[in-house]
Design a protein around this nucleic acid. Structure first.
Length: 441
RNA sequence: UCCUCGGUAGCUCAAUUGGUAGAGCGCUCGGCUGUUAACCGAAUGGUUGUAGGUUCGAGUCCUACCCGGGGAGCCA
């Protein structure tokens, strides 16, 4: 609400999501014409403003001039309307606006390209800047906002400090083949694919830290689960061991789902998401399964996997279906994972790492581990992977000056949003997806 | 990089064995006082992805290339 009369009577400007609280009031709405239907001398204007869609009514006998103007308006004309709100079962949203004034702000010069009927994904992605105004896209992006806010609230309540990792880096965490290279004043630099190493340093300064930021992977992946630029929520905690790490992760997921299903219930319903199922999936604790047991489970389910294999999409789907919940796969063989993970003291062939596999086929939501904190062990692990020590001297310093047990993880935000929304492709979870064949718009 | 499917009107798709390229939607016009992606009627709309080949004749068959969808691998 922008202006409020003390008498509560005239010309309040409200947003559409506030409409149910203003039934009987004369109000102003500012938005865009989403669609138009008419039957002879009565016209139904579907108005959207980013918070929702509401129906406006114009009839010819009562207001012939306004009817004539409304009659010629195309979809996505920007308009400001005033009128009286009233309940009506026949209206799509349960209430509607009897228009008293209609002001045209801008009329489109051409027909709006996004029709309300079917389009191909390629066409929609080419028109992403316009597609995002329509249908499911508005609720999805509002849920994205709620997910980000829930993550920040969670970390704040847990005493974490928000921090940042640099996007431009001179070294890579896991190989340069998947890095975007940029020219940095004649030197090679790369767009960061993880903030983890930097967050380890920051955690030694601040205790518990997190950042939510973009990371970049130059992988030529063409799947519903991959983007080349995506947002990760990464956390790093001093004095947290592997068990503490998993407990924090599951609490975070449950917190986010609880917050989003409460705050964005309307949007989830618009997406036809089964909210009860979603809430049931995140009851704590999440199952934990040893990597070796996961291999056996998959073998019994008919998968051709053996110890030492990474799990592909079909295997992840089987695990998700088996538990009907997010499930931690823990203690992977060392050769499957990067150099910085801590070896399991009980079995040096395994690392204290866990991936969180989402239910319903959404794949890996989180990858995390306890980090190697002993200098000699870390150097030995780097040598096993043929990594040069020099670029990592600053990282090794963290093990030279007051090293402590510490753990962390990275959450794929887009995949999490895709799972919460129940949509099949994560390109719809970000305003402007960057993919193998997609750099426009 | 590999597998697979596809490219025909602005959009989504059809077109029999190789034989006159069509429909729905959108835009435009007309009709309808409760529409729900409204409905009904009319009109508009084409270098069939590109290049070459076979043929009396190619959207259809052949070759090469380009672009895209889905999936795999890799990963979050």
């Amino acid at each position: 609400m922008i202006k409020h009369s003390l008498k509560g009577d005239t010309m309040q400007t409200i947003t559409i999501d506030e409409a149910p609280r203003h039934v009987g009031d004369e109000i102003t709405l500012r938005g865009w014409l989403y669609n138009k239907r008419s039957s002879g001398k009565i016209m139904f204007l579907q108005l959207r403003d980013g918070t929702g869609v509401i129906q406006g009514i114009v009839t010819e006998p009562e207001s012939p001039e306004m009817f004539a103007i409304a009659d010629r308006l195309q979809r996505e004309t920007s308009i400001i309307v005033t009128g009286t709100l009233r309940e009506d079962k026949r209206a799509p949203s349960g209430c509607e606006l009897q228009l008293s004034t209609l002001k045209v702000v801008h009329e489109p010069t051409e027909a709006f390209p996004i029709e309300l009927t079917e389009h191909t994904p390629a066409f929609l992605m080419d028109h992403r800047h316009l597609w995002m105004r329509t249908g499911r896209q508005v609720p999805i992006l509002r849920i994205r906002d709620a997910v980000f806010r829930a993550l920040r609230d969670f970390f704040h309540e847990k005493g974490f400090v928000a921090t940042e990792a640099p996007v431009l880096t001179g070294t890579s965490v896991e190989g340069t083949t998947t890095l975007f290279e940029v020219d940095y004043f004649g030197e090679k630099a790369y767009l960061g694919q993880s903030g983890q190493l930097y967050l380890e340093a920051t955690a030694m300064a601040l205790g518990k830290v997190y950042w939510i930021g973009p990371v970049f992977r130059a992988e030529k992946s063409k799947t519903r689960k991959h983007l080349t630029e995506f947002w990760m929520a990464e956390a790093e905690m001093a004095y947290y061991d592997h068990t503490d790490n998993l407990r924090l992760q599951e609490e975070m997921i449950a917190y986010v789902v609880d917050a989003v299903t409460t705050e964005r219930k309307t949007e989830l319903e618009q997406l036809k998401r089964d909210i009860d199922l979603l809430r049931e999936e995140v009851t704590l604790p999440f199952p934990r399964i040893d990597y070796a047991d996961a291999v056996k489970l998959l073998q019994n389910a008919g998968h051709d996997v053996s110890f030492g294999d990474d799990f592909g999409a079909p295997q992840e789907a089987t695990l998700g279906d088996h538990f009907h919940k997010p499930v931690f796969i823990e203690r992977f063989p060392v050769n499957m994972k990067p150099f910085y993970m801590k070896r399991d003291p009980q079995d040096a062939s395994r690392v204290l790492a866990a991936d969180l596999i989402g239910p319903e086929g959404y794949g890996e939501l989180i990858g995390g581990s306890q980090r190697a904190d002993n200098l000699e062990e870390l150097i030995a692990q780097m040598k096993e992977k043929d990594l040069p020590l020099q670029p990592y001297e600053w990282y090794l310093d963290l093990r030279r000056y007051g090293s402590v047990p510490h753990s962390g993880f990275g959450l794929g935000v887009a995949r999490t949003i895709g799972w919460i929304c129940g949509i099949s492709h994560i390109r719809e979870t970000i305003p402007f997806a960057r993919q193998l064949n997609r750099l426009y718009p």
